[in-house]
Structure formats: structure tokens, C-alpha cells
């Protein structure tokens, strides 16, 4: 029983990270109807930035906040410089640009930092909190950080005029322009936010998986599964999906299929959802009249 509880809680901790990356994917998807394949590499790259800052003598939390800010700027710049010119191109062209970004970010990381595995510090104590035997402090800390971030995002989109404008621009760009919203900038802002969310996820996962240029590969796959399970156009669904995938992956990996096949859980989920219920748990069903 203890082992099961342990696995479920550990699953929630990694699930929070999948939830964050899934949320970043959903944000871009809602605005552009495209899945950003470079989301994971962007997060990885930002985690390297954080590592550089920490090694340059910054404290963990100042480096954390600075990285989130830099990630935001990086996201905005990428949207303005790379994505904007292909905005109205066919879907396939944009997907190729996303894959190009993925490869470029990965290569730059290898070029600057070499491919060797680095340790990334955790800001949380090494002894378990409150003497509990189920979760490490980092796991609890990662969940708390994720939840705070989700809450802030929710408040931003729900209660601020800018958040409302971003939702409006994503939903109905033509009408948004007619009330004076600069839709192009809202997209850039969405990219910035997505990159910032990814950066937080990267910094939370790096102490667990270690820092290396391919660290987000598997996580991006789980995040895809999470986004699909929740419904790829539903932010709340993405968060739910993230936690669900995290728990499933851990529990199944520990008791049923073994650790080697863990990643297959994500693939099976992706295929399963697409076959059985393509709109996911909370997604909208799209009906097209012919």
C-alpha cells in the first residue's frame, strides 16, 4: 500500500510538470490551432540559461525569476521574428518551422554547453519535509510551484483586461480587431507566456532528470498525451491530463509494465484518445457542415 501511495504522489509531482508543458502547448494551440513541437526544446534552453545564471553567482530564486523573464522575452522574439512571417502559410510550412526551431535550439544548446549531463540544483531541502516518508521535498516543492503558477495564470486570464483581450484574440481574431485589440501582439504575448511556463517546468524537472539537451524529449511526449487526454483546446483539461498522465505513468511503470515501457504509456494514451475520443475529456467537439 505504501508503495502505491508513494507512486501516486510521485506521479502527481511529475504530473505537475507535464501539466505545465501541456498548458503551454494548449495556449499556442488555442491561438493558432497548431501544436508547437519546439515547446520542449525552448524549455530546455531556458533551463540552461538558469544554470548559467546560477553558475554566474546568482541565488536560486533570483536566477529563477530572471529566467522566467528571459524566457518570456525569448518567446515573444521568436514569435515576432520566426513565426510571424509564416503566419498565413499552409499548416505544413508552420510545422516545418516548429521542427526547425526544435533542431536549432537543441543544436545551440549542444554547441554552447556541450552534450554532457549537468546537475541542476533544487531550491528545496534534501531531507523530506515534515518527516513524511512518501515524497521528497523537491517533489512537494515542484507541485507547489506548479500550482502557484497555474493559479496566477488563471487569475491573469480571468480577471485582467489583458487576459480577456488575449482570450478574445484567440477566439475570434476578426472581432478582436474590431474592438481595437492588436491581435498580432496578443499572439506574441501568448508565445512569451508559453515559453515562461515551459521554463518553470524545465527548472522543476531538471533536478530529477538532469540537465542535458534532450531532457525534454520524453516530457514533451507526455505533455502531448496530457493535452490530448484533457482536450487540446481546454487549458483546465490540459492540467487535469497532466496530473493523470503523471500518475498513470508512475503507477503502471512501477507495478504493471516496468520502467522500460513507461514512455509507451504516453503513446498508447495518444493513440487511444485519438481513436476513441478525439476531443479529449474537456475539449470541444468540432462539427463541420459540408
Amino acid at each position: 500500500m505504501d508503495a502505491l501511495i508513494h507512486q501516486v504522489l510521485a506521479g502527481l509531482a511529475t504530473g505537475g510538470i507535464y501539466a505545465s508543458v501541456a498548458l503551454a502547448l494548449v495556449m499556442i494551440y488555442q491561438a493558432t490551432h497548431l501544436v508547437n513541437f519546439a515547446q520542449g526544446e525552448l524549455a530546455m534552453f531556458c533551463t540552461y540559461l538558469a544554470w548559467t545564471l546560477i553558475n554566474a553567482g546568482f541565488g536560486y530564486w533570483p536566477a529563477f525569476l530572471l529566467t522566467v523573464g528571459l524566457a518570456f522575452v525569448l518567446g515573444v522574439v521568436i514569435e515576432r521574428v520566426v513565426i510571424r512571417p509564416v503566419e498565413n502559410s499552409p499548416v505544413l510550412a508552420v510545422v516545418v518551422v516548429f521542427i526547425g526551431l526544435l533542431v536549432i535550439l537543441n543544436s545551440i544548446a549542444v554547441w554552447i554547453y556541450t552534450g554532457t549531463i549537468k546537475t541542476f540544483p533544487s531550491p528545496f531541502p534534501t531531507e523530506p519535509l515534515f518527516g513524511n516518508k512518501f515524497m521528497s521535498s523537491h517533489e512537494i516543492g515542484a507541485i507547489v510551484v506548479t500550482l502557484i503558477m497555474l493559479l496566477l495564470l488563471y487569475a491573469f486570464f480571468r480577471f485582467t483586461p489583458l487576459g480577456l483581450a488575449m482570450r478574445a484574440a484567440a477566439q475570434n481574431p476578426a472581432s478582436a480587431k474590431l474592438v481595437g485589440i492588436r491581435v498580432g501582439w496578443m499572439l506574441a504575448l501568448g508565445w512569451g507566456l508559453a515559453a515562461a511556463i515551459g521554463a518553470v517546468a524545465g527548472m522543476m524537472v531538471a533536478p530529477i532528470v538532469f540537465l542535458e539537451p534532450n531532457m525534454m524529449g520524453g516530457i514533451l511526449l507526455y505533455a502531448f498525451a496530457a493535452a490530448l487526454v484533457g482536450g487540446v483546446d481546454s487549458p483546465g483539461g490540459a492540467v487535469f491530463g497532466g496530473f493523470l498522465v503523471g500518475v498513470l505513468e508512475n503507477v503502471l511503470g512501477a507495478f504493471v509494465i516496468g520502467n522500460e515501457l513507461k514512455l509507451a504509456v504516453a503513446l498508447v494514451l495518444i493513440i487511444g484518445v485519438l481513436v476513441v475520443k478525439p476531443s479529449g475529456f474537456f475539449g470541444k467537439v468540432h462539427i463541420t457542415r459540408v
Partner: peptide, 19 residues
């Protein structure tokens, strides 16, 4: 009509005053 269908009536009106 250009309604923002997933937003509430009040949010639609507030968007009108966005600028």
C-alpha cells in the same frame, strides 16, 4: 454580429471598451 461566443455577455461588453 461578431460575438465572442465563449465569453460572457459582460465580457463581450467590456471588450468593446478595451481601448
Amino acid at each position: 454580429r461578431g460575438t465572442f461566443v465563449n465569453l460572457t455577455t459582460e465580457e463581450n461588453l467590456r471588450l468593446g471598451a478595451y481601448t
